[in-house]
């Protein structure tokens, strides 16, 4: 790793501070830059400011929901979306996937599985930066 390398940015949108902190700590290991947002609006602003390489977002939070996901899709075309939601039902999962979400997880999710998905989706970006 070199000092001047620009790490890939991962946006974590999550209204629960502890959950956010956990995700931050875990993803830090992957060597990515973390941007955080505590609600939907903040997440959208952040997407416009910094083009993230991946967005990891909660579904149920202030200014969240499926509309928010659809907007994210429009604002950040081509950016992989990982959705985590508390005990989601079949319908939510189907709707999310229909919107083009790359990965879907129900809370509670095993962090190892989540990290695995993030690593897979970031793949080239991670490799590019590391090299």
């Amino acid at each position: 790793m070199t000092q001047d390398r620009k790490s890939a940015v991962v946006l974590i949108a999550e209204d629960d501070r502890e959950m956010r902190s956990l995700l931050r700590d875990e993803l830090y290991d992957l060597g990515v830059s973390i941007r955080e947002a505590a609600d939907g609006d903040e997440a959208l602003r952040s997407v416009l400011d910094t083009r993230p390489a991946l967005i990891l977002t909660d579904l149920r939070m202030p200014a969240g929901g499926l509309d928010y996901i659809a907007r994210l899709r429009t604002f950040a075309p081509g950016v992989p979306l990982v959705l985590i939601t508390s005990f989601g039902d079949q319908q939510t999962k189907a709707n999310a996937l229909a919107l083009g979400v790359e990965a879907y997880f129900d809370k509670p999710v095993r962090i190892s599985e989540l990290k695995e998905a993030v690593r897979r989706l970031l793949g080239p970006a991670l490799d590019g930066e590391i090299d």
């Binding site: 502890e18 959950m19 956990l22 875990e26 939601t85 508390s86 809370k107 509670p108």
Partner: peptide, 15 residues
């Protein structure tokens, strides 16, 4: 309501 707290506990334990 409990999905997130459970996830925090689980995640922290794993961590």
């Amino acid at each position: 309501e409990i999905g997130t707290p459970m996830n925090v506990i689980l995640g922290r334990a794993e961590y």
